[in-house]
């Protein structure tokens, strides 16, 4: 799937930012398999961008097109289909069901459109070092653990685009690398685009394109 953005700018941003930004106010096309790194200092609209791309917010000017279809015109029903089949995300604020166990959280996502069998949950969580937490309530897990749960959850569905919003903010380098490795593997498996927005450059993400927001 191809993702294009045209003259995208949050309604609450001054037009002046388009002069310095490599994304706001520009026309860009992201193709299948692209690994996009977006370096975005605080306040530059990183989470806004990810939310726009995921269809969570519409307070922007310009257009976001998935295969030439305008995201702004999607109904909630269509949007849910895209989120189920084509676009996956790791939220900055994770967004897990705190009262459910880790396994339940992952299964809720997996069953929606099973790309992997249930056993894959055990395997992936094992690789990221949270295998022993599967039956624990999510709310009791540390932030770092929750971040890894959110990463695994994003990999259980089919996707053409994986949106990452500061996915490693609470992980040490070792764990971040392991998680990145897993995500890259899964993206390759699907020939998917990764759009990785973070505060700074990260060495272990082999981006094909780099943008400064």
């Amino acid at each position: 799937m191809q993702l294009s953005i045209r003259q995208l700018l949050p309604t609450y941003f001054d037009k002046k930012v388009t002069e310095t930004s490599e994304i706001w106010g520009k026309d860009l096309v992201f193709n299948k398999g692209d690994l996009i790194k977006i370096v975005a200092p605080s306040g530059s609209g990183k989470s806004s961008l990810i939310n726009f791309l995921y269809g969570l917010r519409t307070d922007y000017n310009g257009n976001i097109l998935y295969d030439d279809k305008d995201l702004g015109k999607f109904s909630l029903e269509i949007l849910s289909k895209y989120r189920k089949d084509h676009i996956s995300i790791v939220f900055q604020d994770l967004r897990l069901f705190e009262d459910q166990t880790v396994r339940e959280n992952l299964e809720i996502k997996r069953q929606l459109n099973p790309y992997h069998p249930p056993e894959k949950i055990t395997e992936m969580t094992g690789r990221l070092g949270i295998g022993s937490k599967l039956e624990s309530r999510c709310g009791t897990c540390s932030y770092g653990e929750q971040q890894r749960i959110a990463i695994v959850r994003s990999l259980l569905q089919p996707f053409d685009i994986l949106l990452l919003d500061e996915p490693f903010s609470h992980l040490d380098n070792k764990n971040s690398e392991k998680a990145m490795e897993l995500m890259l593997e899964e993206a390759r498996l699907r020939n998917a685009t990764i759009i990785f927005a973070d505060l700074e450059r990260i060495d272990y993400f082999p981006f094909t394109r780099l943008y400064h927001l």
Binding site: E77, S80, R83, K84, I108
Partner: peptide
Amino acid sequence: LLMLGYSP
């Protein structure tokens, strides 16, 4: 659930 892709 809606964010995760469950249909309304």
